[in-house]
Simulated scan of single mutants.
Amino acid sequence: MFDPKPYIRTVPDWPKSGVQFRDITTLFSDKKAFRQLVDAFVHQYMDVEFDAVVGIDARGFILGSPIAYELNKAFIPVRKKGKLPFATLEESYDLEYGQAEIQIHADALKPGEKVLVIDDLIATGGTLEASCKLVTRLGAEIVECAAIVDLPDLGGSKNLKDQGISVFSLCQYEGD
């Protein structure tokens, strides 16, 4: 399995002191590593039955679109509030210093469809959890939540698993 860690830059003390920010733009900008990254997810899900990839604004779009293309699945965007032009469902989630909202088109998924929800990173899990709520409100089923990086110390992946949602990541950063 592809290990993305050598391609991920750690930026100390950003956006605030004490935070070790995991910058995946360096992974995306390396053409060979980016291909290996997409291929790793394609191989992970090529034998899994599902209908669509739900990508979360914005880095989930970068990753989810080529995965959906390669697996011949639909791609469904979950966007920040105010970015979708048609009737939407919205879900609030907590941020470190407040709240945010995401939206999905009200007709994006049909009841019973199975989806893979994808983002770049699992930290507290708020964005993924809110996205999963939107998916289930439309009557679709979550096959799994996937990300490049999991930060298990922040509890997001555990919280999703405690809700019965399967979680997959290519790498983890614990205790650092």
Score class of each variant (00 low, 15 high):
residue 64 G to I: 03
residue 83 K to S: 11
residue 121 L to F: 08
residue 130 A to R: 00
residue 119 D to Q: 11
residue 119 D to A: 13
residue 56 I to W: 03
residue 84 L to R: 02
residue 36 Q to P: 00
residue 96 E to Y: 02
residue 70 E to C: 12
residue 141 E to D: 12
residue 38 V to W: 02
residue 115 V to H: 02
residue 112 G to T: 04
residue 106 A to M: 09
residue 86 F to A: 15
residue 93 Y to K: 06
residue 53 V to Y: 01
residue 140 A to D: 01
residue 85 P to S: 14
residue 132 C to Y: 00
residue 131 S to M: 08
residue 107 D to P: 04
residue 69 Y to C: 13
residue 40 A to H: 08
residue 116 L to G: 03
residue 70 E to N: 14
residue 124 T to M: 05
residue 135 V to H: 01
residue 84 L to I: 12
residue 135 V to D: 00
residue 125 G to L: 05
residue 112 G to A: 10
residue 91 E to W: 01
residue 77 P to K: 08
residue 95 L to R: 09
residue 40 A to W: 08
residue 65 S to E: 09
residue 140 A to V: 02
residue 38 V to L: 10
residue 106 A to D: 13
residue 38 V to G: 02
residue 91 E to C: 12
residue 53 V to Q: 03
residue 96 E to K: 03
residue 122 I to G: 01
residue 44 Q to H: 14
residue 54 V to H: 03
residue 106 A to L: 12
residue 51 D to V: 09
residue 115 V to F: 04
residue 101 E to T: 14
residue 57 D to A: 11
residue 125 G to V: 01
residue 119 D to G: 11
residue 138 L to R: 09
residue 125 G to D: 04
residue 55 G to M: 06
residue 79 R to V: 11
residue 140 A to I: 02
residue 125 G to Y: 05
residue 41 F to C: 04
residue 45 Y to W: 12
residue 82 G to Y: 07
residue 71 L to H: 01
residue 100 A to N: 11
residue 117 V to I: 15
residue 74 A to E: 11
residue 60 G to W: 02
residue 122 I to Q: 00
residue 52 A to M: 08
residue 99 Q to D: 10
residue 80 K to F: 03
residue 131 S to I: 04
residue 78 V to F: 01
residue 132 C to S: 14
residue 117 V to T: 05
residue 106 A to I: 10
residue 79 R to E: 11
residue 41 F to A: 02
residue 137 R to C: 05
residue 110 K to F: 10
residue 37 L to Y: 07
residue 114 K to S: 13
residue 119 D to F: 05
residue 127 T to G: 04
